[in-house]
């Protein structure tokens, strides 16, 4: 028995080491750098300063934050609209089909999202697959302008992030006690009524989890907007990348990154408490 406990310690220990070396320490360095100033001779210069954070309070940064939040919010909403019916059908289908459908949701996920974004370019461009099919079918005469539009950006975000929405929704829908739905039906409620008054409220934790899982990564996925949207507007992700790579202002980029992480952390905390409360209410 002693051996297996040592194995367990090793396993847990290596996970913690991994987290500390590859996540915690780099993040602490970033955090410290955010209070320094860019130097002439070195990449950073010593001395404590809050000026990086003060610089973040500017109309340009607010405008970028607004665009980022709007983009991520709409993407989460679209994912919900597409993902909920899918998860619903998935949860209703036979136990044999379910693993297969889940597998189909997961497979694209194994490919790097940047590569999938470039693959979408091949679909959406003027002489791309979609336009060629539509033209061959005689549905359109001129190619549609799909690339470099807001629509293309949302297609890209929804396509990339949909599994994050489907999986928690599926889990929540599976957990709904079918007897409750049946009871509703027996008491004379039609399908729409049972759906909105029983299924949806019972799956609220799944809806919130899915929205968070889509919204938070979408905030940082500036490259989807760059590649599919034509990079005409600037998002927070662009701003952070440019501070590091173009202006060599590592402290400024670090400050922006830390602020964004803290904001995301707060949202997660909020989600944590909200779901806890929901669970408690459900128990009662």
């Amino acid at each position: 028995m002693k051996n297996s406990s040592r194995f367990r310690q090793l396993l847990i220990g290596s996970t913690y080491t991994w987290m500390v070396v590859l996540a915690l320490i780099p993040y602490l360095i970033l955090f410290i750098a955010s209070f320094l100033l860019p130097g002439d001779d070195q990449l950073v210069q010593s001395g404590l300063s809050f000026s990086n954070y003060q610089h973040l309070i500017s109309p340009a940064v607010f405008s970028m934050a607004r665009s980022s939040i709007l983009l991520a919010g709409v993407a989460a909403l679209l994912c919900l609209l597409v993902g909920y019916p899918f998860a619903y059908i998935l949860a209703q289908s036979s136990a044999k089909v379910q693993p297969l459908m889940l597998l189909l949701v997961m497979i694209p996920f194994w490919t790097n999202s940047l590569i999938r974004t470039y693959a979408l370019v091949m679909m959406l461009k003027a002489n791309g697959v979609i336009n060629q099919v539509l033209m061959a079918l005689g549905l359109i005469e001129m190619p549609l302008q799909l690339m470099y539009t807001q629509t293309a950006v949302f297609i890209g975000l929804v396509y990339t992030l949909l599994p994050f929405m489907i999986l928690p929704l599926y889990a929540a829908l599976k957990a709904v006690d079918p007897r409750l739905v049946e009871a509703g039906r027996d008491l004379g409620a039609n399908w729409l009524n049972t759906f909105f008054r029983i299924t949806v409220p019972l799956t609220t934790p799944g809806i919130i989890a899915g929205c968070m899982l889509v919204f938070l990564p979408a905030l940082g996925m500036f490259y989807v907007a760059d590649v599919l949207g034509g990079a005409r507007s600037m998002l927070l992700g662009n701003y952070i990348r440019d501070q590091f790579l173009i202006y060599r202002n590592i402290p400024m980029g670090a400050a922006a990154s830390v602020t964004m992480t803290v904001a995301m952390g707060l949202m997660l905390l909020l989600y944590f408490f909200a779901s806890k409360r929901l669970n408690r209410e459900a128990m009662q």
């Binding site: 003027a126 002489n127 760059d226 034509g230």
Partner: peptide, 21 residues
């Protein structure tokens, strides 16, 4: 000039040109 610009791309601008975008 901004209204005239459809795309900013430094990675592979030939794609947009060749596709007629």
């Amino acid at each position: 000039l901004m209204p005239n610009i459809r795309v900013f791309d430094s990675d592979s601008p030939k794609q947009a040109l060749l596709a007629g975008e």
